[in-house]
Write a protein that binds this DNA or RNA. Structure first.
Lengths: 151, 151
DNA sequence: CTATCTATTTAGAATAATTCTAATTATTGA
DNA sequence: TCAATAATTAGAATTATTCTAAATAGATAG
């Protein structure tokens, strides 16, 4: 109600995005989004909740989860770890990456001959990676998964 | 006690690995490892627990977590999602990957000009990726993090 | 503009995943 | 063998996330 013209254009686009994905615009969603944009430091849902309450004291945790979910599904926000389910374990210590099938939920090992090296040159000065992980999501070749069925 | 000679050599190496990382050999650790090697399907800790009980009915959930942790720290097993903490959110929708600093816990956006494309040609027939994520762990440039301190 | 329909929000309960605790047991090394 | 330490166990505790039911808000048809 008090945010001024400068943000309006963005709000329009924001609105669009939500609508396209079948969500309504709500002040809570806008607020959660603003909170994320304000400090781009990869907060947890709980941190988002705490920050969101500053400008919107009545907001609930459930709403924060709901908003984050809507924002992710609208392509406005990303989850840093693709999956929020239980951790899985893998005894394959060779160079490989993981393919999560979004249809059947299975995880496949995909061998990589090119080991996933992000050349250090590309990293800002001072970053020293010790482990690089590549993961993919999509459809696996199993029957019913490869985009044959609607879901 | 009944596993035969073929596995012995492996056991030796297994033992070595644990010792090098400061862990003792225990039948539970061996068993959990065997369970993982038996069916390489990325089970959750809970699934490992259920399977482990088949050959070792007295094993507890806490031990399974303990064993998995020891195996991961010894480099014998990987966690599929690098982090088992709360999901984090990121409003940066440009092509980038994430760098987790193992010292300070911060997550940094790293821009990628080469978008992380695993050429479809490399994938086994039928896999259709829709999203590719690259993430790194290591030391960030912040003071005290870049390997200056021992940890 | 009002009634209605549906999406959203809310608080709090429920569930799921993981970690912690305290007592017991096993292993190592003097 | 004995002491010291590490690991295991059951179960409680914690944390992250999802669910539920009631209340509210927004869009739409009249």
């Amino acid at each position: 109600m008090s945010d001024s013209a400068k943000a309006f254009q963005t709000d329009e686009q924001f609105n669009q995005r939500l609508h396209t994905s079948g969500f309504r615009f709500t002040p809570q969603r806008q607020h959660v989004y603003n909170v994320l944009m304000e400090t781009r430091d990869h907060p947890t849902a709980d941190q988002v909740f705490i920050r969101s309450r500053e400008g919107m004291p009545e907001i609930s945790m459930a709403t924060v989860y709901n908003c984050l979910d809507a924002l992710v599904k609208s392509g406005l926000v990303r989850q840093v770890s693709l999956d929020r389910a239980a951790t899985r374990y893998c005894p394959n210590m060779t160079e490989h990456c993981h393919f999560h099938c979004t249809d059947c939920g299975k995880i496949f090992d995909i061998d990589l001959d090119d080991k996933p090296s992000v050349p250090e040159a590309k990293l800002p000065r001072g970053f020293k990676p010790e482990q690089i992980e590549v993961s993919m999501r999509g459809h696996c070749p199993d029957k019913g998964c490869s985009g044959h069925s609607r879901n």
